[in-house]
Computed example of a mutant assay.
Amino acid sequence: MQHFPLRTLVLAAAAVLAGPALAQQGITVVNFGGANGAAQKKAFVEAYEKSTGTKITTVEYNGEQARIKAMVEAKKVTWDVVEVEGPDISRGCDEGLFERLDWSKLGSKSDYLPAAVHECGVGAFVWSTVLAYHGDKLKNAPTGWADFWDVKKFPGKRGMRKGARYNLEFALMADGVKAADVYKVLGTKDGADRAFKKLGELKPHIQWWEAGALPPQFLVAGDVAMTTAFSGRIDAAQREGQNLKITWTGGIYDLDFWVMPKGGANKEAAMKFIALASSPDAQAEYARHISYGPTHTKAMAKIDPKVQALLPTSPANSKDALRFDVAFWADQGEALEKRFAAWAAQ
């Protein structure tokens, strides 16, 4: 049997008694890092720490829902607030991985974009996956996905995120399907076959990426002539002086959400963070640091028109865009991703 000094035992007892109070000493917020993480630090994290005196530890991850699931099932939840992608909020909510959100702390649901309102979370920002290229290396600007597929007119490799999401939609648009009809077509067996066939045409020219930091690096290095990319990553490279460009036509926009993993010890503090990050002022500040659109409808009026012009939510950039269909991917995503993995491995 181990013997502990009396002081240690007293401190341990005090820690047990003060459990909830100590838990409020800090919260852990998890995001995707990179330019997005840096913008969140300026707009949300620093503002929260200043207004509450509570320290935030930020953790970077790559969207692995399995890590949240393992914590919740083991009842050892160390993450208080997590940023998740659209399809993952619905799936995680259905599986009981997230707390139900107290919307009374966030103001009126009507102040948010309809897509931002969810029982298990709130939209953090609107982002877009777009066609990007290097302005110094392409003489003629590509006008859409048909050009992305045209390796004769635009020779060179193509960067694409490794997965079925987005790529199947882009393939159908490249094959002449209107944005408004993409999910209707993709939902049929013939439509899915058509998308994979079109993707197959480009396969010898594809350089896959998984981390969002890679597409701008590919373009700057000249590894690819064009790439799919998160619009905010291209924006960050532009701010560093790189002449990278975006073709917004046929871009797919989606929302990331704030959620609280079920069973976290700091629910009240976590909810306070989400409320601050959802406020118009904080969202406007975030948009100044990265070109992702706000989900609170009153934030846009606080954003400079020059900044607005760079956002996926601006009228010019969203007019030919496709809204990522979360319900479609929740329903058919698993089968399509399995098919994609088998196709990519061939």
Rank of each mutant, 00 (worst) to 15 (best):
V117E: 12
A146T: 10
S314N: 15
K245N: 08
S108M: 00
A195C: 05
L310Q: 11
D304L: 05
I27W: 11
N266I: 01
K109S: 06
A275M: 11
Y61C: 04
P280S: 07
L311G: 06
T227W: 00
S278R: 03
Q24R: 15
R339T: 06
D150K: 04
V177L: 02
Y292T: 05
A236W: 10
D256S: 14
L202E: 05
D80R: 08
A179E: 04
W258V: 05
E210N: 14
P20N: 06
W127K: 12
A341K: 13
V72Y: 09
A39E: 01
T297M: 13
K76T: 04
G156Q: 03
K262E: 13
K139L: 12
Y112N: 12
K298D: 15
G19D: 08
G53I: 02
T78M: 00
F4Q: 08
A14I: 14
T227L: 00
V117W: 05
K203Y: 14
L9I: 06
A330G: 10
F218H: 03
F125A: 12
G63Y: 07
Y133N: 01
D150C: 07
Q242E: 15
Q346C: 03
L322C: 12
Q283D: 08
H134D: 15
A265N: 09
E83C: 01
E268R: 09
K41P: 01
A43T: 14
A70M: 08
G63T: 03
G191C: 03
G191F: 07
A344T: 00
M271H: 04
S90E: 15
P87T: 06
A47G: 08
D181G: 06
Q65R: 07
A270E: 08
A70N: 09
D325E: 10
R7I: 13
N266C: 03
K139H: 11
L202N: 10
E210W: 11
D181H: 10
W149F: 15
T57S: 12
K306Y: 01
S90W: 08
G159N: 04
A221C: 00
G92W: 05
K272C: 04
